[in-house]
Design a protein around this nucleic acid. Structure first.
Lengths: 229, 229
DNA sequence: TCGCTACTGACGGAATCTGTCGCAACCGGG
DNA sequence: CCCGGTTGCGACAGATTCCGTCAGTAGCGA
């Protein structure tokens, strides 16, 4: 690989990661020595890329870019198509529609050859075995999450006890056949998760919850020991 | 000026002009010889830049090398993030990397407020229960599909009989825990599907298969009664 | 304090780049 | 049909850059 190609791919590697990467990892990824990596970083910096390097932590590309990114590779197109097909198959109707809408927008900026890749992609998703869960609940929960509003739900717990709770939904997890909403539960005053198929009814409340969802998400991650993805 | 810096500014020069420029002009602008300019153009082309050069006319950068800004709805962003996370979790390593790469590229052409939606998306994919299948086989099959090449595989059928077949892979299906490749089997002279975890070895052949993959895909769909997605 | 990591400098051998020359192929206009 | 302008390619020798290794400094977090 030529050096200039390598610089571009280094930029991509940095762009891809939202948090710090150590030089050693990058060097291995590119197949060069650590010393050369530092030289490459220096080169990019002199050309205008804003790269933070902190000792003991790693490198990070600050948003604010030297160049608009290059066009998608055909593998990236494949990944997007496959992912969208999965969403179209597994998620509730509005989200499924959004998935194909997003794909259409991407297609419209693609050069001819890549558009062919997109349209003729051979990566398909097998149909889900389980029947689709109630889409209305999923849609309502996502809406509340997006806008950071509280909702009131009728819930049936694992022991089949009914309860009614006010929760602050902060994440929605997709598993093989079920979906689980992670939320702060006002009743229990702690983070809980609720299977979507055990929620009988969702009533959106007009009250915003008092913290940023991102903050809550971070706290939940910390409490469960889940690293930043 | 280092060569890599020069390549970037050559790209800028080409992008700035809507119509053809002669090599001589570009060479003078960059302060290099004509021969070196041709070499630089060739380098950019091998790196994916689509540059038309017509004798007697000049060079021109065709659109589609750099990504234009994109606009999505919040729901479309959510769909893309969710889909990409699923791919990043379930597919083989290169495809998983491509998924996050695509997302990063999308992020960098998004306006600020939408970028926040992308980074703070609360839609997550539960970890797969099954161990990941052998990524090398999946990668090799995808490559053959993309380039329409035949491959030779060692296969263990449902009755545990070993066989070696030359197949034309045309599609790869992702199911809950397994992946299945759909292919034309030269041995059986018909479309067959092969579980990826029962393929012991994949040997890429240097021969292209004689029909377009899209045509074969259509024939297979017809033979199975699957509608166009 | 310790471990990890970002940085920098120097050096010699390897790899790449550069300009020059020559030549073929192609386009448009005379 | 020819001719000037242009892209494109190969070869070559000298200049330049690049690379890995070794050594050392310094900052961050625990």
């Amino acid at each position: 690989m030529s050096r200039s190609a390598r610089l571009l791919s280094l930029l991509e590697s940095l762009r891809r990661r939202r948090y710090s990467v150590t030089g050693k990892v990058l060097a291995e990824e590119l197949g060069i020595s650590l010393r050369s990596l530092y030289r490459d970083i220096a080169t990019l910096q002199t050309q205008g890329a804003r790269i933070d390097g902190a000792a003991g932590v790693g490198f990070r590309l600050r948003p604010g870019f030297l160049m608009p990114p290059l066009m998608f590779s055909n593998e990236e197109i494949e990944a997007l198509v496959l992912g969208s097909r999965w969403v179209a198959d597994r998620a509730d109707a509005p989200l499924a529609t959004a998935a194909s809408g997003a794909l259409a927008k991407i297609a419209s900026v693609l050069p001819e050859n890549l558009r062919e890749d997109l349209e003729g992609s051979g990566l398909v998703v097998g149909p889900s075995r389980e029947p689709k869960p109630d889409g209305a609940i999923s849609t309502a929960v996502r809406k509340a999450m997006r806008e950071e509003f509280k909702v009131r739900v009728d819930y049936l717990d694992a022991q089949n006890r009914k309860s009614q709770r006010t929760i602050w939904p902060i994440a929605l997890g997709f598993f093989e056949s079920i979906q689980v909403v992670v939320a702060w539960c006002e009743l229990r005053q702690s983070f809980r998760h609720f299977r979507l198929d055990r929620i009988g009814n969702v009533q959106p409340l007009p009250t915003r919850y008092p913290k940023k969802r991102r903050i809550l998400l971070g706290q939940w991650r910390a409490s469960e020991g889940i690293p930043e993805s």
